[in-house]
Design a protein around this nucleic acid. Structure first.
Lengths: 203, 203
DNA sequence: GTACCATCTAAGCACTGTCAAGTTTCACCG
DNA sequence: CGGTGAAACTTGACAGTGCTTAGATGGTAC
């Protein structure tokens, strides 16, 4: 079955191996040949499953974005189950966003790094790929927090921007030294999100 | 003077050429050998001015960050000269931040991309390299907007996060399609920054 | 004038992504 | 059961990369 030829599911194996390399060594360490070696196949075997390196990396980025998305959806669902107000749910999503970035910096980076193709390349007119549950929930929650329809878009983009920016500054920017201390990160995220929260109906 | 040997200022030439390649072809297209070729020197000449590729790219990232910083400082100075309130100045800095990212996406990306070394590697305890004028001005303006000392840090980080996040989403994220339309970007930035502005003393 | 030293060159290694052509194996159809 | 076509994989090769080691060059200070 896994007898050299007809490996079984080489595509999946390559992606899994790539995810592992990504997490422990970073994007720069990704090499098709190395991945092939790890999977026990020849150097050119991956070309039967991906158009090239860029294609593989894009698939990996898709997975990474899906992971982030799942984390957001989970956080919102938990908050909702606990009976949180829309404001608190928005906050929970933001915290989950930043914590995901801090916990999986390489995955987070890759999701938003289009140097060889990006998950956002195929976008609907609405501005979001269809299958991003967590983000759709964000938009929905914003709609509850912000009653004025004209201000919903800026509010949603603003909330996302703040969370994303904070995550980026913690992962790649000048706040990097803080990222090691998870408790401090959580406190900081809370403080920032509260300070920047939209002025919707009080919680 | 520029007679093959003792090129004159190879280091500067290489960085300039690199900046050009960066702007028109992206980080991925940067290659030491190519840069050497463009400068008309042998493939290994750059190694007498940089420890390696990572070192050159880091220097380039430093330059990029300095450019961004200068843009911020300029924007704030102009706003201040026009007699803007602290709130408006903060907004002007934010707009300048996002517009810089949209106008020079590759430079912006590189400044916050530590794959081969980052401008933030040598950081003071305060959390910022000393020579970042624009950012120091940001902090100063925040101090005027937010009187409560305990909330100044979160407010400053929040403002920075929002601007940075919005910039990142416009450059690398799902808002990429908007980035082409500069007017729309400007409007969006205004709307978002107003929505997320700290609730300091009214303007 | 000569010794020094920063600057540059030349040759070579190990590695990469990718292409072209050949080989193996499986699934299906008579 | 035997054959056939296609998918999965291999071999071999090419151009390009970063980087190291060893040598050539030329301005500068004694």
């Amino acid at each position: 079955m896994a007898d050299a030829y007809h490996h079984g599911d080489l595509r999946r194996t390559l992606l899994d191996e790539a995810a592992h390399v990504l997490d422990v060594q970073g994007v720069g360490a990704l090499s098709l040949r190395d991945l092939a070696r790890r999977a026990g196949v020849s150097a050119t075997a991956p070309y039967h499953h991906f158009k090239g390196k860029a294609d593989l990396v894009t698939a990996l980025a898709d997975d990474a974005l899906a992971d982030l998305d799942a984390a957001l959806a989970r956080a919102d669902a938990e908050a909702a189950a606990a009976g949180a107000t829309p404001g608190k749910r928005l906050c929970a999503i933001g915290v989950a966003y930043v914590l995901f970035a801090v916990d999986h910096p390489e995955r987070f980076r890759l999701a938003f790094r289009p140097e060889m193709g990006s998950p956002f390349d195929d976008m609907a007119d609405e501005g979001l790929p269809e299958d991003l549950v967590g983000f759709r929930q964000l938009v929905r929650v914003v709609r509850e927090v912000e009653p004025d329809p004209d201000r919903q878009a800026p509010t949603a983009i603003g909330a996302w921007s703040t969370a994303h920016g904070l995550a980026a500054l913690l992962v790649d920017g000048p706040l990097r030294t803080l990222a090691a201390d998870r408790d401090r990160v959580q406190a900081l995220v809370g403080a920032v999100l509260v300070a920047e929260a939209p002025r919707g109906p009080a919680p």
